[in-house]
Nucleic acid binder design. Structure first.
Lengths: 233, 233
DNA sequence: ACCTGAACACCGTTCAAGT
DNA sequence: ACCTGAACACCGTTCAAGT
């Protein structure tokens, strides 16, 4: 018993919502969305599956909390100093989300789902608030603000999610395989499509290889920003 | 036995991939994504769960096939006559997808997932092909075609999916409840957020009520089209 | 070749019982 | 108040056995 007196390492501290959500994020990062299980999670927390339900209502709420935490971190990282312009601020927010989704591939899927399915769940208001302020600062008229916010947000989440999946899927084909090998496989499939039905995709497939890195992602953001300027300003 | 001689109604014809996929679409429409189960599906087809695996590899492939079928129907519906201009054609494709996702709420989720996760699965090439042709016709330079395609596609799928969920969720709060009552609930939650942290969302929440119908959806498409024109043409 | 249906290895969630 | 862990009602998938 003497060896156990002072050592608040990480075993005996009581369960809490924060510890549970933190462990869930770790599990999602390490094992993906399929790896987040109440059994695996309770094992990691050295408790029983039922214990988690004392602090969290169900799996949806747990995923929403994990997503909200990850988004808070992503948006806090990009909040350094006063931005030069609303355009620059929007690009910074977009890149912050891009990098966060790159680091946590499950985050792309969860954000896209929560944005439309449960817009009261913290992650959604956080993102809409940050982009909304800049859209307003840009001078977009009131009745069109959500249109422009959603044009930005759905592109950001979709494109960032795709980038993250491309990089994660590459590792699953064969551990350590490069992203380009995964994209090569997609390109090969596209080039095998019926040339009568899919002339464009077949001809353009090769372009995909260079597509989804940070600079291409930002080019898409700039297209939407240019559209906002041209239509509303 | 005399009553059973000639009546190819729908009981005794053999299982086939097409019948299975058709029944899956029906089940998804009626019971949602959670309702699509190999047990429920095999019951509807008057067979055992194992029989389905003779024609379909697994649930992912079944969902991909159902999604591909629904997209084919959506894109065929909008293919009447030669379009006036690439812009008009893109708007028509967008509206076709919007209406299809409105009619099949599960389609929004599945398309967004397949677009980034399994881009070889028929639904993705179909959509990229149709939009890609118009982007090329517009005169977007080769190296930027996928950037503009994805800006359009991710907005279309995200915004259409949100519209569909809003309408479907309304019915789940209480059967027959209007879409606006669901949005009112979201607005109420947003207006209860901390005013220090969420000034924009709180102030703008009311705008949401008028947001996501067809004309607002199209306004978003026009923003992106204007951006494409302004940046690349 | 195609179908059957029991069985396997999981899930999320509940809940009586403990402390 | 908080935790335990067996039990319940499901899943997707497999596979020996049938036709």
């Amino acid at each position: 018993m003497a060896t156990r007196t002072r050592r608040p390492e990480r075993r005996e501290e009581p369960l809490s919502r924060e510890r549970i959500v933190g462990a869930a994020v770790e599990l999602l990062d390490q094992a993906g969305e399929a790896g987040l299980t109440f059994r695996a999670l309770s094992e990691r927390l050295a408790t029983g599956p039922g214990a988690i339900y004392w602090h969290v209502a169900n799996k949806d709420e747990l995923l929403a909390a994990a997503t909200g935490d990850a988004v808070s971190a992503a948006l806090a990282a990009g909040a350094a100093g006063p931005p030069d312009s609303p355009d620059a601020a929007i690009r910074a927010i977009a890149l912050g989300l891009f990098d966060a989704i790159d680091a946590h591939p499950w985050l792309g899927t969860q954000l896209a789902l929560q944005m439309s399915r449960s817009p009261w769940q913290s992650a959604t208001p956080q993102i809409l608030e940050r982009i909304g302020r800049q859209v307003r600062a840009l001078g977009v008229p009131e009745g069109s603000q959500f249109t422009t916010i959603f044009a930005l947000v759905y592109y950001i989440l979709g494109a960032a999610g795709q980038n993250a999946v491309n990089r994660a899927s590459a590792g699953m084909l064969r551990p350590g395989v490069a992203r380009n090998e995964y994209l090569d496989a997609v390109v090969t499939q596209w080039e095998a499509l019926d040339p009568e039905e899919y002339p464009f995709i077949r001809a353009a497939a090769g372009q995909l290889r260079e597509h989804d890195d940070r600079s291409e992602f930002l080019a898409g953001v700039d297209v939407i920003l240019a559209g906002i300027t041209s239509v509303y300003l």
